[in-house]
Simulated assay, not measured.
Amino acid sequence: MLAQSQFEFQPDFQPAVEDALRFFKAGLGTNLHSVYVYGSVARHEAVSGQSNLDIVVVTHRPFEDNRTTLLNTIQWRFQRGFPHVKGLNVKLALAKEVASLESIFSWGFLLRQCSECIYGEDLGECFGDYEPSWEIAKFWNDDVAEWVKAYRLKVAKATTAAEQSHAQVMIAKKLLRASYSVVMHKHKRWIDSPVACGDAFLLSHPEKQLEIERLGILLSGRVIPKRSVVGLIDGFGQWLVKEYQRTEFKIG
């Protein structure tokens, strides 16, 4: 099924989505298969000055010869034309890779469950409705230990408030979503908003109220002392890694 020619997002982000679509249609021509928006913009929860625009671009064929130029150009356009958009995150994929059985937990889940097709044939329709399960939670959060290690270092090495704020927001999003993944198989419902993930997690782990509140502070972008951020990552982050491993052992 072809995506609707008209799509509507929040007023602050609608022009940015339209410009990105025009750019990829012009830059890729007949090689462009479809375009999708995911993340806070797709959920209509984006905040001006704080939220990224997350896009999936699917092509018929690889375009390695002009890939770097194309992506650098659109990043430059966004920095100049849409300064209220925190960043532009573009994922690239080939149509034949997306519409395959091997992609059921990766591209299939992302496009079917988390994205809105704004152009072309909606490959999300190749997949059936997903039931919340440990298998999906595990696939998308199996790297939580690596995130804890990497973002602990990023916070510690940040030399500007902007760098630290960005690192705080990124690790807060990951930990809040990963926390819900531990209990998602019990709740049997999809949640993507980091704040909502934390709230749902607390229904099963009310003893972690303080940690979730502190992750909410990191998520706001407010810079706080590094030792406090590192302490939260070391404490709650490592607890979450162990809880994740324990749940995997129980469920298998």
Score class of each variant (00 low, 15 high):
residue 245 Q to F: 10
residue 245 Q to H: 13
residue 239 W to F: 06
residue 248 E to W: 01
residue 233 I to W: 09
residue 239 W to I: 01
residue 243 E to T: 13
residue 228 S to I: 05
residue 248 E to D: 07
residue 219 L to N: 10
residue 235 G to Q: 01
residue 239 W to A: 08
residue 226 K to V: 14
residue 242 K to T: 02
residue 246 R to D: 14
residue 248 E to F: 03
residue 236 F to S: 01
residue 230 V to F: 07
residue 248 E to S: 04
residue 241 V to M: 14
residue 222 R to V: 12
residue 230 V to D: 02
residue 240 L to G: 06
residue 231 G to R: 14
residue 240 L to A: 03
residue 240 L to W: 07
residue 227 R to A: 09
residue 231 G to D: 15
residue 233 I to N: 13
residue 247 T to C: 05
residue 233 I to Y: 08
residue 235 G to I: 00
residue 244 Y to F: 15
residue 240 L to R: 11
residue 219 L to F: 03
residue 242 K to N: 09
residue 237 G to C: 12
residue 237 G to H: 08
residue 230 V to T: 11
residue 229 V to F: 12
residue 242 K to F: 02
residue 224 I to N: 08
residue 228 S to A: 12
residue 231 G to Q: 06
residue 241 V to E: 02
residue 234 D to Q: 08
residue 238 Q to V: 12
residue 239 W to S: 12
residue 233 I to V: 15
residue 231 G to P: 05
residue 236 F to Q: 03
residue 234 D to Y: 10
residue 224 I to E: 14
residue 244 Y to E: 03
residue 230 V to N: 03
residue 225 P to Y: 00
residue 229 V to N: 02
residue 237 G to M: 10
residue 228 S to H: 15
residue 223 V to H: 01
residue 241 V to C: 05
residue 245 Q to M: 03
residue 230 V to G: 00
residue 234 D to M: 04
residue 223 V to N: 07
residue 241 V to Y: 10
residue 222 R to T: 15
residue 243 E to C: 02
residue 238 Q to D: 05
residue 224 I to Y: 12
residue 233 I to S: 06
residue 231 G to A: 13
residue 220 S to W: 04
residue 244 Y to I: 04
residue 246 R to T: 14
residue 228 S to T: 05
residue 222 R to W: 04
residue 247 T to G: 00
residue 241 V to R: 07
residue 236 F to G: 06
residue 245 Q to S: 10
residue 219 L to P: 11
residue 246 R to K: 15
residue 242 K to H: 10
residue 219 L to Q: 04
residue 248 E to V: 01
residue 232 L to Y: 06
residue 236 F to V: 04
residue 234 D to L: 05
residue 234 D to S: 01
residue 219 L to V: 00
residue 246 R to M: 11
residue 246 R to E: 15
residue 230 V to E: 12
residue 246 R to G: 12
residue 242 K to P: 06
residue 244 Y to M: 12
residue 224 I to W: 02
residue 219 L to Y: 10
residue 227 R to D: 11
residue 245 Q to P: 02
residue 223 V to T: 11
residue 237 G to D: 12
residue 222 R to I: 07
residue 242 K to Q: 11
residue 230 V to A: 02
residue 237 G to I: 09
residue 244 Y to L: 08
residue 229 V to K: 07
residue 232 L to D: 06
residue 220 S to R: 05
residue 219 L to M: 09
residue 237 G to N: 05
residue 222 R to G: 11
residue 239 W to T: 01
residue 231 G to K: 08
residue 230 V to C: 11
residue 232 L to E: 04
residue 247 T to L: 02
residue 225 P to C: 00
residue 237 G to E: 10
residue 243 E to R: 09
residue 233 I to K: 08
residue 233 I to H: 05
residue 230 V to R: 07
residue 237 G to R: 13
residue 237 G to A: 12
residue 224 I to Q: 14
residue 246 R to A: 15
residue 247 T to S: 06
residue 237 G to L: 08
residue 227 R to V: 13
residue 221 G to K: 09
residue 235 G to C: 00
residue 242 K to M: 06
residue 228 S to E: 13
residue 232 L to V: 03
residue 235 G to D: 11
residue 248 E to G: 10
residue 247 T to I: 11
residue 246 R to Y: 09
residue 247 T to N: 03
residue 234 D to N: 15
residue 228 S to D: 14
residue 220 S to I: 08
residue 225 P to I: 07
residue 242 K to I: 00
residue 227 R to F: 09
residue 223 V to A: 07
residue 229 V to Y: 10
residue 234 D to R: 07
residue 243 E to S: 07
residue 235 G to H: 05
